[in-house]
Write a protein that binds this DNA or RNA. Structure first.
Lengths: 256, 256
DNA sequence: CCAAAAGTGTTTAAAATACACCCATGC
DNA sequence: GCATGGGTGTATTTTAAACACTTTTGG
């Protein structure tokens, strides 16, 4: 199917597949070279950037829609995602954006479910940066990682959504374990600490950090140490998946 | 307008006024005679009970929709409400419920936006029990308070929504001040403590409770004491509205 | 005057924070 | 052998929890 035809089909018949007036936007966080990254899409023609988003199939749980979107944009599966907020300002003018998009594509339509007002549910995901193959969707020209400190101009209220997502992630850090999908399978304590410091955007005491993390029991220390490093070699750790999953659900309660 | 006509209008033309596929359900908590209450509606004909709910006007913020629903059911205004979760199981069969309702009313319709699948956003509110005049909506035969420990059978997933709302309220208690809308303007420390104990469903140490609450600074002690009580008269307190509002937004962080 | 409820402490335990010392490795 | 980063331990401060005594009031 040609691109124009695909778009036209989506605008004229999408409401037969998807729920109306509701979209899902995903804030996909990654971690690479000591920097927190977010995956963004560049809207075709417009040039502005956007959060990876999509719609809920008529017979699909919203959580599954979010996972499907993640899978489609990154190829990554089986990631813990969670909704954190619904954005519903009546002036988030998706209508304007979608009409402009159609005009740019060269498709002419008077009516479309895509011109209705949308509210959107924000979902966060934490993924392994190295496992991601970014794939733009049909509305987008590019799909790229951005450092959290140098976010480009974004469409609609997406900058606001991203800000809320980051605040939510920072808050969650006190109650939920973080790192399983963000770090390689084996990692050192300094690496884990760097992750926490990057997300919280502050430095932490090396020794107190270690004590607290270890006391949660979500880590297993391996006998192996990192090779080929100057200075003393740090141990490798793995997450204890069973306890990690348990802590994800029940929380673990410490402050950093 | 006759009742049947009103219903028919809603089912045939409601989608011109409201967003499709999204509803809002409110969990309205009250406090009376040392018991935590929830306001429920009895669905006409069905007999089962339901959370007060409604739809989002096409040009309305979802938060305002929730406030409008609260106002319509209780007459109460200017209450802090907040969304806590979106419920989106594809098998929450509003279609079945709504078709049955129409059948019972005696209205015959093949098509309606009300037969679409709905996701619903849960909102919690804490209101002054004594100021509420419960008013059923057009789908309901009755509107009543229920003790949180004796909830009747409910439609759809409403029992689950209520359960999540209560858990959310208990969690929030550690970070947000509670009581402004649940207690009279002037109240005693034992009354406030009883409120916390009721919500958390556990007893608290009288002296430690007082110290922590006072240390947040959200209270102002009056010179007045309660009259006509046996034993030592407790002081009256008021909330310091400015600090209370501030704590609502920024959190206050203590454990009980 | 006494029982019951409320006000105001203090003592004790736990947890968070700050800080000090030793160890291993590559240059 | 020394500078650098990492492992481990301890003192200090802060905060939470447990507990005791005094005050007031109606009956």
């Amino acid at each position: 199917m040609s691109f124009e035809k695909e778009i036209k089909e989506h605008f004229t018949k999408g409401h037969e597949k998807f729920l109306r007036s509701v979209s899902v936007d995903c804030i996909i966080f990654g971690f690479h070279e000591a920097e927190l990254k977010v995956l963004l899409l560049q809207a075709k023609y417009a040039g502005l950037w956007a959060l990876p988003g999509g719609f809920i199939l008529k017979d699909e749980h919203m959580d599954d829609a979010a996972k499907r979107i993640l899978q489609e944009r990154t190829g990554v599966n089986d990631i813990y995602m969670q909704q954190f907020h619904v954005f519903s300002q009546p002036d988030r003018s998706t209508k304007k954006v979608n009409k402009q998009f159609l005009k740019n594509v060269g498709v002419d339509l008077e009516e479309s479910w895509m011109f209705d007002r949308f509210i959107t549910v924000g979902y966060t995901a934490l993924v392994d940066f190295t496992k991601v193959q970014p794939v733009p969707d049909s509305f987008s020209a590019a799909c790229n990682w951005f450092n959290i400190n140098s976010i480009p101009e974004m469409i609609l209220d997406h900058a606001n959504i991203l800000e809320k997502a980051l605040a939510n992630l920072q808050m969650q850090l006190n109650y939920h374990p973080v790192g399983y999908n963000l770090l390689p399978e084996k990692f050192t304590m300094p690496e884990l600490q760097k992750l926490y410091e990057t997300i919280l955007d502050k430095t932490l005491d090396r020794r107190n950090f270690q004590r607290k993390i270890v006391s949660t029991g979500i880590l297993k220390r391996l006998d192996e140490t990192k090779k080929g490093v100057a200075h003393k070699a740090p141990y490798y750790y793995k997450f204890d998946l069973r306890k990690y999953q348990k802590a994800l659900k029940s929380g673990m309660g410490f402050e950093l």
